[in-house]
Design a protein around this nucleic acid. Structure first.
Length: 469
RNA sequence: GCCGGGGUGACAGAGCGGCUAAUGUGACCGACUGCAGAUCGGUUUCCUGGGGGUUCGACUCCCUCCCCCGGCACCA
């Protein structure tokens, strides 16, 4: 099914078509490693991980690039408050970030690009912008982008310059000619890390790194740019202004995607509000898979409220799906070649895959896609009760694996060697003998012992099935 | 003030110009059952923020008002 994506630039859903064949160049704004990775990061990166996975599943060759802002005000603040080197701080928090991402199954990024590795490109771009009259040098050696020279300013956010309130959140720097202007190159202040440039020592402004990085990897134009909605203005607006002014190629990015925020009891999550959730804190309470499920159980554009009640609900919901996947696997081991409900099960599997795809192709509607999986799970459980054959169950299992690979869920527990499976079967058979003798004490002892090893026994109408937890 | 996104059952949250308005959680009843677990069936609650319009028909499109969230110039 053709993919439709909501494009923030046009404010509607559009048919997705890459610029070059089936190659998709995708860039997502990465983080500034200067503190713990929090649930907001997790939501954004899980969402775009699913986007990349789904596009790849659909046969697109996706190159997923993410930047890392390794020099920025907050890092310098941290330097000052801790006395540590900037790259030491970055190294620590970026490593922590990678660990968290791995646990959340965010595996689709191809390249992490560090801003400071692109100083040459940044300088080159700024020089180009100055030459073309889009940027000016201030007295202290900083360079600013002159937004009055870019007629497209505001096209992404829908903002009109005259209607903005300068200084609503951050004080306007007095060196700027116009409040909308933004810094491209920040002159060094004593004690700050700095790089050489034609304008003296300094460091890149926040917005310029992204265009420097993407122009090097993708050229003047690319397919998808993702990020959280809070970055839409001014950050993404600034990227467009820089890139289009520098290259003259429009549009810089074909599709802009913005993800909703993580809220805590209806408030934005902030360290200063005391409602801050580092991912590691959440991981102490919930399995990574549950957190991932919680995050993909909403449409990416919507916000999500991060509360223990909703996490608990997500845990119970997810358990239902995961349990079904385990049941299907367990049944495959003991099912006869064919069963009464095979026809229904095959139809349900086919329908589930089609409906799942339809949901995902509609702006990556994971919420809808997961609703499809609940229907599928019920159909599968029902078929198993009626009697499903191995071949049909294999197809069901494969379908769950397919959708699980796209969502990053249903990780299969490490399967034991065949010999272990055989051994469990033997023990289960012995327990059945005990049950037939009504020796329930022995039967329960065996069940408990296996349970302690992560093997769960379930007595059903037609025999025992066992699963790995 | 301006820009963007929203307001759907107890809660969370989809959808679509007309099908009993998904799905999950919760609650209740039933089936299965040595116990446990899992599962299945059923019931429960919204006619979709207020008002107006377009239409044979709107939750879905248009207008207006109210309310919530985010952004407004270095927050994922």
């Amino acid at each position: 099914m053709a993919i439709r994506v909501y494009n923030s630039l046009t404010r509607r859903k559009e048919a997705f078509a890459p610029l070059h064949g089936n190659r998709v160049s995708m860039f997502v704004c990465g983080l500034t490693p200067q503190d713990e990775t929090h649930m907001g990061h997790a939501k954004t990166y899980v969402a775009f991980d699913v986007v990349a996975r789904y596009l790849r599943h659909k046969g697109f060759h996706v190159f997923y690039l993410q930047n890392v802002t390794d020099i920025e005000d907050r890092i310098i603040d941290k330097m000052k408050s801790t006395g540590r080197a900037w790259n030491d701080i970055v190294g620590q928090y970026f490593a922590e970030y990678l660990g968290v991402m791995a646990r959340l199954q965010c595996t689709s990024v191809d390249v992490y690009a560090f801003a400071t590795d692109y100083i040459d490109e940044i300088v080159e771009q700024i020089e180009g912008l100055i030459t073309k009259g889009h940027a000016y040098r201030a007295d202290d050696g900083s360079v600013y982008f002159d937004t009055t020279t870019f007629s497209g300013w505001g096209k992404l956010s829908g903002q009109k310059v005259e209607e903005l309130r300068p200084g609503a959140r951050v004080a306007v720097e007095e060196r700027k000619r116009h409040p909308a202007d933004f810094v491209l190159w920040r002159a060094q202040k004593p004690g700050e890390p700095a790089w050489d440039s034609p304008w003296g020592k300094g460091r890149p402004g926040w917005h310029i790194e992204d265009t420097a990085i993407t122009i090097r990897h993708f050229g003047p134009q690319y397919d998808l740019h993702g990020g959280a909605t809070e970055l839409l203005f001014p950050h993404h607006e600034a990227e467009i202004a820089q890139a289009e002014s520098y290259t003259g190629v429009t549009p810089f990015v074909k599709v802009w995607m913005h993800g909703g925020m993580v809220m805590v009891k209806g408030e934005e999550m902030h360290k200063s509000l005391g409602n801050y959730w580092p991912v590691t804190a959440a991981l102490k309470l919930y399995e990574p898979e549950v957190i991932r499920f919680f995050l993909v159980n909403v449409q990416y554009r919507g916000p999500i409220d991060f509360t223990p009640e909703l996490l608990d609900e997500a845990k119970r919901s997810y358990e239902r799906l995961r349990e079904t996947v385990r049941t299907v696997d367990a049944e495959r081991r003991r099912a006869p070649e064919s069963g009464k409900a095979d026809r229904e099960l095959r139809a349900a599997t086919k329908k589930a895959l089609a409906d799942f795809d339809a949901a995902m192709s509609d702006d990556f509607n994971t919420r809808e896609a997961i609703a499809v999986l609940f229907d599928f799970a019920r159909a599968a459980n029902k078929a198993i009760e009626t009697g499903a054959g191995r071949a049909a169950l294999d197809e069901t299992a494969a379908a769950f694996r397919t959708v699980g690979d796209i969502l990053g869920l249903f990780l299969t527990p490490a399967a034991g060697a065949d010999r272990v499976d055989g051994l469990v079967d033997v023990v289960v058979a012995l327990r059945e003998d005990a049950r037939k003798r009504k020796d329930f004490a022995a039967a329960d002892r065996i069940r408990d012992a296996l349970g302690a090893l992560g093997i769960v026994l379930e007595d059903t109408r037609d025999g025992v099935r066992w699963k790995r937890k």
